[in-house]
Design a protein around this nucleic acid. Sequence first.
DNA 1: ATCACTATACCGAACGATCGGTAAAGCACA
DNA 2: TGTGCTTTACCGATCGTTCGGTATAGTGAT
Lengths: 189, 189
Amino acid sequence: MSVRPVSISDRNLLASLGAVVSRFGVEGASLARLSQASGLKKASLYHRFPGGKDEIVDAIVDDTEARFAKAMSSAYVEGDPAARAEALAAGIGEYYAQGADSCLIIALSVSGDEIREGAARCVTGWSSALENVALDAGLTPDQARITAIDAVAAIEGALVISATTGDTGPFERALASLPRRLTTVPESA
Amino acid sequence: MSVRPVSISDRNLLASLGAVVSRFGVEGASLARLSQASGLKKASLYHRFPGGKDEIVDAIVDDTEARFAKAMSSAYVEGDPAARAEALAAGIGEYYAQGADSCLIIALSVSGDEIREGAARCVTGWSSALENVALDAGLTPDQARITAIDAVAAIEGALVISATTGDTGPFERALASLPRRLTTVPESA
DNA sequence: ATCACTATACCGAACGATCGGTAAAGCACA
DNA sequence: TGTGCTTTACCGATCGTTCGGTATAGTGAT
């Protein structure tokens, strides 16, 4: 009967598993590491995810997409584009713990082709949210598309920097400049 | 007599090995994959690198640092900062094959802490080169430092995007905007 | 020029450890 | 006594690594 909603322990489970994959990559996230991080033995993980590691990774990607979509929901509401852009920046900052957390997209990008598709879905979904705000702010479709994907790139790059050197400055500045990026028309051709 | 003659085959060897690590990450770069990519059998790789996989990764990082430093050498010559910034952008574009190649720094960032230090060295070296040009262009030390690391972040993020979706647009735009970034004083506080 | 010896580069086969994955027994609670 | 979840124990495959051996190219003494 219990096709029931995702329990709180499932949510914590996915969070701890996702943290391992984000930090060490798909190939670096061994079942031993996943087991240790989650507190569940290896066979218990197979009870939760009968499809094995592939299903674990898929679940992490799906969960990440869902949580991120929720964090970006303010992109699709009615209202002032500038205020919505601020809300997006705040949501992104919270999602990545102000730059302290590793990014799953980056981890997935250092993997085989099939896994990269999940990363691509996350990127396009994210970019579409930003693009929608940029469109409402008066940018042309081309400008909005380019502005959105470049904003995503800037934040992803900042997360690479914080992951390598620990410097969260680029992340903070990328978020701070996000509202202006999304709401002002680029000057040059 | 010939203590360490770096032969041309050594250079090709490091290039092919580095490509595997950049694309699949340190943990994803198994000896089997490294062997297949280089054409050398596993035991032969141990002849070239007696220290095993760790030595291979170290050699790749060192080689990457050296080649990148060479590509960024125009940062430290005398001359017009704007022209030097253009040269830097051209060097970066060539280094990453206009965004088609994977970035070793990103691959190293999805690894254990010890390996991340190599990535951090690459980032700081790269940022220092850009910072030097920005200083010569008249930016204050703080402005130059921030501008340089943010420019590196923008390019790294663009490489994440191209690795995931295959879209090299962000990379091209990041390079195109690099000279203006490095040579114009930021407007806001 | 020949021979014994050394150094270099490569490879096949195997090592112990760990990988992802499976089966069956143990436990908690109905 | 079931039933859902966890655990111990185990499996074949692959991991990084090592060993033994082959082929070639010097090198020094004769």
